[in-house]
């Protein structure tokens, strides 16, 4: 990162205000919406099945020539 000109992302957060990805308790999402903070709520699921299948799709797709 060019430290002379690029703004530090923490400073950017403080300047701009929060734009949030909320992962977990839905009440936080509603509270942020009530304050008109741009926010998207993630109905988070753990990687129980996800990673395994996605990796396999990646492998199968890559092999399919």
């Amino acid at each position: 990162m060019d430290s002379k000109h690029a703004i530090n992302p923490l400073d950017a957060l403080l300047q701009k205000g929060p734009v949030v990805v909320n992962m977990g308790m839905e009440s936080f999402f509603h509270d942020l919406q009530a304050q008109e903070v741009p926010v998207v709520h993630v109905q988070w699921r753990p990687p129980l099945a996800t990673q395994g299948l996605l990796q396999k799709l990646q492998k199968i797709g890559g092999e399919s020539s």
């Binding site: 957060l13 929060p18 734009v19 949030v20 909320n22 992962m23 977990g24 988070w44």
Partner: peptide, 13 residues
């Protein structure tokens, strides 16, 4: 969906 997001608020297990 929200590429300009600058903060993740994480309250999962």
């Amino acid at each position: 969906i929200l590429p300009e997001a600058n903060l993740a608020l994480v309250s999962i297990a």
